[in-house]
Design a protein around this nucleic acid. Structure first.
Length: 624
RNA sequence: GACCUCGUAGCUCAGCUGGAUAGAGCAACUGCCUUCUAAGCAGUAGGUCACAGGUUCGAAUCCUGUCGGGGUCGCCA
């Protein structure tokens, strides 16, 4: 039983002795704020009705009772209605002796799939993907460590109009360029042709779009012409800026879709669906380039996957779910053949689940893929790491699976996260403000190298060791910066300023670890026994207290799908140990018992620092 | 128009299952390397927790409203 539970138990029995048994007041304690004396605080205000005494008097008599019920508490003080309890130093010494930094949370026998990354194959990865990837990987590691059996999954959107755009542009303008001939990383090469496509399309349609926005565009296709005229009329009536932009966009799309390029592209997609060998061949080749590129980025980021899903395999799934839903009355069909679910009773709208022509929409696939995941892996939970712009989509998806009576529906969770903003605002590919993942990683590496050389502490390290150090430092800085903020919130990333190596950063924690390891090396430490009747410094007790909180923090981080909790914790621990480091000397300590105790604390702290960092994908170094 | 979110120091963020005098880091200023790695430690300065009401012994935290940022409401994904 940990100390907090012991105190709660002691408090409860003290309260029962004084005021009788009752369940109306939940006994909970919190950490005492540093400005007051004590370790844990109990707030007695909710109790004064039962004690019929002043808050001070209640706290006083309760404190005296706790001394008797809880031997680990050796003194207390009362300020207003706050009862501050101090845990005896010998308890902390004993806690350090018994602490096992490698102890694991028992396995829960529960299988969890964490899906993350989930890229499109027409463009290289960027800063937004990085947040997703780091969160997904870290959530998976945290859950694994917290006792779940985790499967990391990646659902790749490898088909559709977007990849056809790259394919068509490459076919027409690529002159056979490939990653080998151009030296371009495969995903960047394919991304380049996506941009070529958009530029050519722009070139070929800008005149027509201009005409269309003046109402002077004519289309041979009567249906399109009618839709255009409708949209133009709405544009004329629109008042709000947002609406105007929307109708302008509609018109633009309409015109562009009639262009030769887009028509050919659509035809290419049809050919792909018809499994035209030539198209399939081109598609596999270009996707192959992309995967090679993605894999290099994943590897550099230090993340991996246990299961790969491809939309080219899953995009037809879900139609049987639609049939099932029609037959059991969860879905209904409209006159045009389209299939819907009515969620108005749940405060949402009617939602299309299959088009009139019988083809799938996004959510159709997701329904099918959800079934597939649960069937294939027998998982109890399924976590989707996806940006918060899809909050509504997942709300609907989960609700549908519930209404379809899926036993697993309650285990579905959308790990929703906020967008990454730049100082200039949102990242926009059209304005060229997208921060490329590979570029960013390289810049980070160069910065880590420059900072390290500036400090000049790496004498005698081999070039491999240095490379490893720069890699780990740069990743630590980046990962920590991104993961330390609450996933649900949008965050700001300034490429010039955001990455620091001092203060609340990954390198700071690494540094704390490396300094400890340096001492342990010098002392030839490989474990020792310690005495518990020693005088501990307040900073040391604080550090031991934090070590004992590790498992609790880990469990909470898992239940909340929140790597930021680990970041905040490991910062606290590193800061706490740095205080110890500055206050007490280990190697110069002549009292062997004291020296051993301090070595023990250093060793345990180093292990917890390392374990914590691994949960967020950061590796330590022995020297830096 | 409807719904969802966020608003804390100059900047980036903690704290939000209600509790004391709201915390870090960066930036600014002051100390500390003949003492285990100064990527560190100690300190100074910096706040009407967007605003207005309400609930409560007690509100940054819960409720309502207002303002401001972002998002969603596609037979796109």
């Amino acid at each position: 039983m940990n100390i907090e539970d012991l105190i709660i138990k002691g408090l409860s029995s003290a309260i029962e002795q004084l005021y009788g048994a009752s369940t109306d007041v939940e006994v909970k304690i919190e950490k005492t704020k540093p400005i007051f004396e004590g370790d844990y605080t109990f707030v007695v205000f909710p109790l004064v009705r039962r004690s019929a005494k002043s808050p001070e008097a209640t706290a006083q008599e309760l404190g005296e009772a706790v001394l008797k019920t809880t031997p680990q508490v050796h003194q207390f003080n009362v300020i207003k209605g706050f009862l501050n309890l101090s845990v005896s130093p010998s308890f902390w010494a004993e806690a350090l002796l018994n602490f096992d930094a490698q102890s694991n949370i028992p396995r829960k026998g529960e299988k969890v799939m964490v899906e993350y990354s989930s890229p499109n194959t027409n463009k290289p990865l960027h800063l937004g993907h990085i947040r997703n990837i780091l969160l997904g990987y870290s959530i998976a590691e945290i859950m694994q460590s917290a006792g779940y059996d985790v499967i990391k999954a990646n659902l790749i959107n490898d088909r559709g109009i977007h990849i056809c755009k790259s394919m068509l542009a490459w076919q027409r303008f690529g002159n056979g360029e490939n990653p080998h001939s151009s030296g371009l990383k495969g995903d960047h090469l394919v991304g380049k042709y996506y941009v070529v496509f958009e530029n050519k399309l722009q070139e070929q349609t800008s005149d027509d779009v201009a005409l269309a926005l003046e109402g002077r565009w004519n289309c041979k296709d009567q249906n399109i012409q009618k839709r255009y005229q409708d949209a133009f009329e709405k544009l004329g009536q629109a008042k709000e800026e947002k609406q105007i932009a929307k109708f302008k966009g509609d018109i633009k799309d309409l015109v562009r879709n009639q262009s030769d390029l887009m028509q050919t592209c659509q035809e290419m997609l049809r050919q792909w669906e018809a499994k035209n060998p030539e198209i399939i061949d081109l598609w596999s080749t270009m996707n192959g380039w992309v995967y090679e590129g993605f894999n290099r980025t994943y590897e550099r980021l230090g993340v991996d996957f246990d299961a790969m899903y491809y939309e080219s395999n899953t995009y037809l799934l879900g139609k049987d779910v639609v049939q099932e839903g029609l037959s059991n009355g969860v879905f209904f069909q409209k006159a045009d053949g389209s299939v819907w679910i009515d969620l108005t009773g749940d405060g949402l709208d009617e939602k299309l689940v299959q088009r009139g022509d019988g083809t799938s929409v996004y959510i159709t696939q997701d329904m099918g893929t959800a079934d597939l995941k649960f069937q294939e892996h027998g998982i109890n939970r399924s976590v989707y790491v996806v940006g918060n712009e899809q909050d509504y989509h997942f709300k609907v998806l989960f609700l549908i699976m519930q209404k379809m009576g899926r036993s697993y529906a309650n285990g579905m969770y959308h790990a929703s996260y906020g967008m990454v903003d730049l100082p200039s605002g949102k990242m926009k590919s059209r304005e060229g403000t997208v921060v490329d993942a590979d570029d960013l990683l390289q810049e980070m590496y160069d910065t880590a190298k420059a900072k390290t050389e500036e400090l000049g502490k790496t004498e005698g390290m081999t070039s491999e060791e240095l490379d490893n150090l720069y890699n780990r430092l740069s990743l630590a800085a980046l990962k920590f910066f991104i993961l330390k903020v609450d996933p649900r919130k949008r965050m700001l990333f300034n490429p010039q300023e955001s990455i620091d190596f001092q203060g609340d950063t990954g390198p700071f924690v690494m540094y704390t670890y490396a300094r400890i390891k340096s001492i342990l090396r010098t002392a030839n430490f490989d474990g020792c026994t310690i005495k518990i009747d020693l005088v501990l410094h307040a900073t040391e007790m604080e550090c031991i207290k934090l070590l004992n909180e590790f498992n609790g923090v880990l469990s909470a981080a898992a239940e909340e799908y929140n790597p930021a909790a680990i970041c905040q914790y490991v910062l606290d621990l590193a800061k706490s140990y740095n205080k110890v480091y500055n206050e007490v000397s280990i190697l110069k300590e002549s009292n062997e018992d004291l020296r051993n105790m301090r070595l023990q604390l250093a060793w345990q702290t180093a292990q917890i620092l390392q374990r914590s960092l691994r949960l967020i994908g950061v590796e330590t170094v022995e020297r830096m």
